[in-house]
């Protein structure tokens, strides 16, 4: 059987290698500013992985809030406190060894779990036409266009309805009993908005107290 390269898998490999490599780089490097930069690349690649998983809204949110907002804030903090002794702080090697042992065993457990469910180890197969040699030449693009991997995903509207308390993706569930658990997210949404407001006021208050203390 002819098996073509799946570009979805190719980009998954690319982004996952970027994300993992730069996450490891964040751990290994001692310079705090470089750490921040590696973190940016790692989280940006994670956004790419979100896009590949069909979550385009979440991917864009990740780029906007995480990479564009949170990390700029973080780098701001780094630059405000970046005096020579704090730019690169070394960790005693005993702590490194301990952390490596704990992290390694945690990773082993997580990898074991990740591959223990058979239904998860392989994604949905490509449409039949993609596997024939003629398919790659002619009508494969037709068949692939309807594959969820390559069709543009459209989740923004559903997410918006979900945040307003309507689950337009769960309409097929007729049983009110099982529908009760999948109501919308209006209350959490409101709580989060008030929470953000409180955080904003709190952060502003802390920043004000800072000036008073220094006078």
């Amino acid at each position: 059987m002819h098996s073509p390269i799946i570009w979805h898998s190719f980009f998954f490999l690319l982004f996952s290698i970027l994300a993992c490599a730069f996450a490891v780089a964040v751990v290994v490097t001692t310079n705090i500013v470089r750490m921040a930069f590696f973190l940016v690349v790692s989280l940006g690649s994670t956004a790419g992985l979100f896009f590949l998983a069909g979550a385009d809204m979440v991917g864009a949110m990740q780029l906007m809030i995480y990479v564009g907002g949170t990390l700029v804030l973080l780098i701001f903090g780094v630059m405000l406190t970046a005096q020579q002794p704090f730019v690169s702080m070394h960790t005693p090697s005993g702590e490194w060894i301990l952390a490596a042992i704990v992290g390694g065993s945690l990773l082993a457990v997580l990898l074991q779990v990740a591959w223990s469910v058979d239904a998860w180890t392989q994604g949905p197969p490509l449409p039949e036409a993609a596997y024939t040699r003629e398919g790659t030449q002619g009508n494969a693009s037709e068949a692939l266009a309807h594959d969820p991997r390559f069709a543009p995903s459209q989740t923004a509207t559903q997410l918006g309805f979900g945040l307003l308390g309507e689950r337009v993706d769960q309409l097929s569930v007729k049983d009110p009993e099982s529908r009760a658990g999948m109501s919308g997210y209006l209350l959490p949404f409101e709580i989060v908005s008030v929470h953000l407001l409180v955080v904003l006021v709190g952060a502003a208050y802390l920043a004000r107290a800072r000036y008073r203390a220094s006078e």
Partner: peptide, 9 residues
């Protein structure tokens, strides 16, 4: 949204 996000980077 994507364009705004990327421009922010």
């Amino acid at each position: 949204f994507f364009i705004l996000a990327v421009m922010g980077i």
